[in-house]
C-alpha cells in the first residue's frame, strides 16, 4: 500500500467516502458539544448580554473563510505546478465552502452589529476585508464556471487564486489604514482580554466543528467532481457498485 497512490482520483474516490463519513460524524458531535458550551455553560457577557453568543458561529466561520482560501490556493498551486488533477479538483471543491463561510461570517456579523453598534453594517476593517474576500471567492467560482475545458479552468483559476494570495494581505492592510483614517471612534471586534475560559473553549470546539464540516463537505464535493470529470474512465463504473 503506497501513500502516494491516493493522489490518483481512482484510489482517492473510495477513500474520500470513508473519510467524509468520519468527518461528518465528528462535525456533528463537536457542534452539539460546542453549542452546548455556547448556550448553557458560557456566562452572560456583562456588556453585551446574550447577543455576544453569536461569536460561537461568527468567529469560527471567519477563521474558516480565510483558512479555506489559503488551502484552496495551495492545492490550486500544486495542481498548476505539478499538473496533478486531484489537487485542482480539491481546490475546486473547497471554493463553495469557503464562500459559504465568508457569507456566514458577514451575515452573523450583521446580526451581531445590530444590537452592539445599532447598525446592520459598519465599515469596520475586518468586515470590509471579509466582504472583499467574498468577492474573491465569487470571482474564482465565476471564472471556473465560465471556462468549459476543465484543464484550462483548473490552471486559469489557479493563477487567479495565487494573485489573490499575494493581494489579500495588501488589501487587508490598506482597508485597515483606510478605516483608521476615516473613523476616529473605532469600533472593532477586539475582545476584552479577560475572556472567560468557557467562552474560549466553546469557540475552539466550534472552530474544530467547522473544520470537520468543511473537510467532510469538500470530500463529498470532490467525489462529485471526480464523477463528472472522469466519467469516461472505466474504473468509475466498476467501482460504483463497490463504494
Amino acid at each position: 500500500m503506497n501513500f502516494w497512490q491516493y493522489s490518483s482520483p481512482q484510489y482517492f474516490y473510495p477513500l474520500a467516502k470513508k473519510m467524509a463519513i468520519i468527518f461528518f460524524v465528528l462535525a456533528c458531535i463537536l457542534t452539539v458539544w460546542g453549542l452546548y458550551i455556547g448556550f448553557f455553560v458560557a456566562p452572560t457577557d456583562f456588556q453585551q448580554g446574550e447577543s455576544y453568543r453569536i461569536i460561537f458561529i461568527h468567529v469560527p466561520a471567519a477563521w474558516m473563510s480565510m483558512i479555506i482560501y489559503l488551502v484552496m490556493s495551495f492545492w490550486a498551486a500544486i495542481g498548476l505546478i505539478m499538473n496533478t488533477r486531484l489537487s485542482s479538483m480539491l481546490a475546486q471543491a473547497l471554493a463553495p465552502t469557503g464562500a459559504l463561510m465568508t457569507f456566514i461570517a458577514l451575515w452573523t456579523g450583521a446580526f451581531w452589529g445590530r444590537p452592539t453598534w445599532g447598525a446592520w453594517w459598519v465599515w469596520d476593517a475586518r468586515l470590509t476585508s471579509e466582504l472583499i474576500l467574498l468577492f474573491l471567492y465569487i470571482g474564482y467560482m465565476a471564472l471556473r464556471a465560465s471556462i468549459e475545458d476543465p484543464r484550462r479552468a483548473d490552471r486559469a483559476s489557479a493563477i487567479l487564486a495565487l494573485v489573490g494570495v499575494v493581494n489579500v494581505p495588501i488589501i487587508y492592510f490598506s482597508v485597515k489604514w483606510w478605516n483608521t483614517l476615516h473613523q476616529g471612534a473605532s469600533v472593532s471586534f477586539t475582545k476584552s482580554p479577560s475572556m472567560a475560559t468557557s467562552m474560549l473553549t466553546g469557540m475552539l470546539v466550534m472552530a474544530l466543528a467547522f473544520w470537520m464540516y468543511s473537510i467532510a463537505v469538500s470530500l463529498v464535493r470532490v467525489r462529485r467532481i471526480i464523477r463528472d470529470r472522469e466519467a469516461n474512465a472505466g474504473w468509475l463504473n466498476e467501482s460504483r457498485g463497490a463504494s
Binding site: 472583499i132 474573491l136 470571482g139 465560465s146 493563477i159
Partner: peptide
C-alpha cells in the same frame, strides 16, 4: 484569464475589481 470566455468583459470586472481596492 478571460480570453475567449463567454461574458468576458463582465467577468473581467468581477475578477479584478477587488484587486483595485488598495
Amino acid at each position: 484569464l478571460t480570453l475567449g470566455v463567454r461574458g468576458g468583459a463582465a467577468l473581467t470586472s468581477i475578477l479584478i475589481l477587488p484587486f483595485y481596492v488598495p
